[in-house]
Design a protein around this nucleic acid. Structure first.
Lengths: 121, 121
DNA sequence: GATTTTAAGTTACTTTTGGTAACTCAAAGG
DNA sequence: CCTTTGAGTTACCAAAAGTAACTTAAAATC
């Protein structure tokens, strides 16, 4: 029995699940990757660059990332409002791991699509 | 504008999203990590080691992983039935990336918990 | 000076995904 | 003949994600 499995069994306090439950949602990883490329972005810029996320889901996603200390939110007291987002130190430290995942995805997507087709999607 | 963002914008065929939409669900990464440690496991062994997944969700998760060619399913024609699961080559090639993510999670969990507490969870 | 535009959200509502509990199947054991 | 066993289904209920319309206050347009 490996170390990871033992941690999992005490599932109350399992770090991996605590973290993955959050960034394992539909949009978080995407936001982190985008902010990793663009440094600083405003709300609408982010939304356009994701191109199919709703305002509500972007708000929810950013608030979660903010509360985990992965993304920083800076409000300018202007009208119309201006809010800028960027990765925190912690968010930046997560980037390479997500990049290695997305590199894997790019390399394996053809094989995966073929598998899905065989099994009737 | 980086390469990744351009790929995202053509979101129909984006490899990263196609893959993450699947393994970004609640249980897939967990199953992959466990099968990475135990080599071969039966359905009920998997369920016990996850400790709070329902039969239905384990079935659904395994079927998706199978159809992506990440997990192999071997049925023994016995009664009561016996079904053994293990990672495929492709599944094994994904393991190190998931491990690096979970190492990050372990290192950062304390800081993340502190952030969450500050923001009122 | 009334109307529209603008950025960054809310709110109320619908649809999809996840979760629970009970049921199935066919043979072996008591 | 009734229960147990492993690997699931099925029918049902709750939670998360998605949609469309609304909000807010100033500045720009008519």
């Amino acid at each position: 029995m490996g170390k990871i499995l033992e941690i999992y069994r005490s599932s109350e306090n399992c770090p991996i699940r605590t973290v993955l439950d959050r960034i394992g949602d539909k949009w978080s990883i995407l936001v982190i990757l985008i902010l990793g490329e663009e440094e600083t972005m405003r709300f609408n810029e982010l939304q356009k660059s994701m191109n199919d996320i709703s305002q509500k889901m972007l708000t929810v996603t950013l608030r979660k990332l903010e509360s985990d200390g992965l993304v920083h939110r800076r409000i300018f007291p202007e009208i119309p409002p201006r809010v800028e987002y960027n990765l925190t130190e912690r968010g930046i430290s997560l980037l390479p791991h997500i990049h290695s995942l997305s590199d894997w995805a790019t390399k394996n997507i053809d094989g995966i699509r073929r598998s899905r087709a065989k099994s009737g999607n």
